[in-house]
Computed example of a mutant assay.
Amino acid sequence: MTAADERVHDYPFNRPEGLDLAPAYRAARTSPGMIRVQLPFGEPAWLATRYEDARFVLGDRRFSRAEAAEHDEPRVQYHRGSGGILAMDPPDHTRLRVLVASAFTVRRVERLRPRVREIAESLIDDMRAVGTTGDLVESFALPLPVRVICELLGVPARDQHLFREWSDGLLSTASLTAEEFSRNDQEISAYMAGLVAQRRAEPADDLMSALIAARADNVDRLTERELVELCVGVLVAGHETTATQIPNFVHVLLSQPDRFAELRADPGLIPGAVEELMRFVPLGATSAFARYATEDVQVGEVLVREGEAVLAAIGSANHDETRFPDADQLRFDRGGSGHLGFGHGAHHCLGAALARVELQEALRALLALPGLHEAGHPEWKTQMLVRGPRKMPVAWEAQ
């Protein structure tokens, strides 16, 4: 069958302000089959809102990311970027992913934990040194992952401030002109190409030098354009989502004081808490990166025809009551397995291990701020692919 409801629903459902999951997702999960949605730009798509459907679409090789280039891909932005590794299928995707994956193994990332902890604690010290109030985003959430990923790539400290504007441009859903979008893309690519040239002349112990060496070993493995796009992708993805989730997690925890007190009483719960918060917080303002069926594929009760697009609604899937009992409750005893917060399948987040360490160390450091509480309403991001505070005033007690 195709679906009980063939209407095309306007999408996205979520509001940018706050972290609530729109009621329309629950309605879709409890309706037969998938629903059809229309984003501001591109063709209609099926929307997978249930856990099993979303996981299936993300993991089945009959659904292609590369095929999106041949279609008017559903999207919230007028412009379409190259997509880089996110727009590839195996074997091209595998070829690039293997090169980067070695830098993000759990073992290697764990060796970075002391440095991540050092950065987090130094940022807390800086916050306390200036008083008992501050903006959690500017003072802590943004600089922590930016410093970590820039050190990993070898970006000089003096240039780290440049990447917020560039990243915002790449992830913005605002109606940028073609000239503005192109200029933003060209600026970050040109900067990264210059840094690649510098690292080629003077190699260092960082990820970029390792990628350059991999290309030198076999020129067919990694083109110069792929190298630059990989570094841009690692830089943007490596800080934006983590920088957004830190204040998101704190906002949720401070709104549920019992859960925050639970972590204060037992910091050993932090790893499980990070997994549960990844499940609980619907980060995306919308669903993106459509998968196209390369043949007719049955997804639950819906037969997706060859050439049709499917979007996986991660936030909705992570609140599917059939997979997560009491899904709307924040519980640290779930065991942390199974959520789709880092994706699934071939495009599972490359930096998941690093993000986990950063989020764990961020919470650990923030627990040291006595009496931490929100000191006003957050200013929420708008016209972005991810939801979270742009500014988050907080206060704490002096010691």
Rank of each mutant, 00 (worst) to 15 (best):
303 L>E: 09
91 P>G: 08
113 R>N: 05
252 V>Q: 12
157 A>K: 13
335 G>V: 11
37 V>Q: 01
122 S>T: 06
238 G>H: 03
206 D>A: 04
104 F>L: 02
319 H>S: 10
11 Y>R: 02
297 V>H: 02
230 L>S: 15
199 R>E: 05
8 V>F: 05
67 E>F: 11
293 A>Q: 03
51 Y>C: 02
115 R>P: 02
193 A>E: 14
152 L>D: 01
73 E>H: 05
49 T>F: 03
321 E>W: 00
131 G>H: 12
184 N>S: 13
47 L>H: 03
276 E>D: 15
20 D>R: 13
388 G>H: 04
270 I>W: 01
262 E>R: 11
199 R>C: 05
57 V>Q: 00
103 A>W: 00
375 A>N: 14
304 V>I: 13
87 A>C: 08
248 N>V: 08
86 L>W: 04
205 D>W: 13
123 L>Q: 00
230 L>V: 14
181 F>W: 13
245 Q>I: 07
341 G>I: 04
313 A>I: 03
392 M>V: 08
370 P>A: 08
353 A>M: 00
284 G>M: 04
58 L>F: 09
179 E>W: 11
345 G>L: 09
312 A>C: 14
312 A>Q: 02
47 L>F: 00
180 E>S: 12
228 V>A: 06
224 E>Y: 13
64 S>Q: 06
131 G>I: 10
366 L>A: 10
272 G>T: 06
21 L>Y: 02
180 E>A: 14
283 L>I: 14
8 V>N: 04
71 H>E: 04
357 V>G: 00
319 H>D: 05
156 P>K: 05
123 L>M: 09
303 L>F: 05
128 R>Q: 11
63 F>H: 01
92 D>Q: 15
99 L>I: 03
127 M>N: 01
142 L>P: 00
325 P>T: 07
91 P>D: 10
138 E>I: 10
